[in-house]
Simulated assay, not measured.
Amino acid sequence: MDGEHMQIGEVAARTELSLRTIRHYEEAGLVIPSARSRGGFRLYTEADVARLTVIRRMKPLGFTLDQMRDLLDAVDRLDAGGETGQDERDGLLERVRAYERSANEQVDRLRIQLARAEEFARTLRTRLDRSAPPDA
Rank of each mutant, 00 (worst) to 15 (best):
51 R>C: 00
118 E>D: 08
31 V>H: 02
58 M>N: 08
73 D>Q: 13
43 L>M: 14
24 H>F: 15
34 S>Y: 01
8 I>D: 01
3 G>W: 03
29 G>D: 11
136 A>W: 15
42 R>M: 01
19 L>S: 01
44 Y>P: 02
62 G>A: 09
21 T>Y: 11
30 L>F: 10
29 G>T: 10
126 T>P: 10
126 T>V: 10
45 T>M: 04
125 R>M: 15
21 T>C: 09
5 H>G: 02
67 Q>P: 02
119 E>F: 07
80 A>K: 12
30 L>R: 02
136 A>D: 12
41 F>N: 04
101 R>N: 08
36 R>T: 05
132 A>K: 14
121 A>T: 09
17 L>S: 06
20 R>G: 15
34 S>P: 12
13 A>L: 14
14 R>L: 12
20 R>K: 15
103 A>F: 01
35 A>G: 06
24 H>A: 04
28 A>P: 11
61 L>D: 13
124 L>P: 06
96 V>F: 08
23 R>L: 06
4 E>H: 05
2 D>C: 12
81 G>S: 02
13 A>V: 04
50 A>Q: 07
39 G>E: 11
44 Y>G: 13
63 F>G: 03
73 D>L: 01
15 T>C: 02
108 D>L: 15
120 F>S: 14
44 Y>Q: 08
36 R>N: 02
76 D>N: 12
43 L>Y: 12
114 L>I: 08
32 I>H: 14
67 Q>A: 06
36 R>E: 03
127 R>M: 11
25 Y>D: 06
8 I>Y: 00
106 Q>L: 14
99 Y>L: 00
50 A>V: 00
67 Q>R: 13
75 V>W: 04
72 L>S: 01
121 A>K: 13
5 H>W: 05
2 D>S: 12
132 A>S: 14
73 D>G: 05
10 E>C: 03
17 L>Y: 14
133 P>K: 11
128 L>E: 14
116 R>Q: 12
62 G>N: 09
40 G>V: 08
39 G>K: 11
7 Q>C: 02
2 D>V: 15
56 R>N: 00
134 P>A: 03
104 N>R: 13
130 R>M: 15
25 Y>Q: 01
8 I>S: 11
54 V>Q: 00
84 T>Q: 13
9 G>L: 08
52 L>K: 04
110 L>C: 07
90 D>S: 14
130 R>N: 10
43 L>H: 14
121 A>Q: 09
38 R>P: 03
41 F>Y: 14
30 L>E: 08
95 R>L: 05
66 D>Q: 13
103 A>G: 02
19 L>A: 10
39 G>R: 11
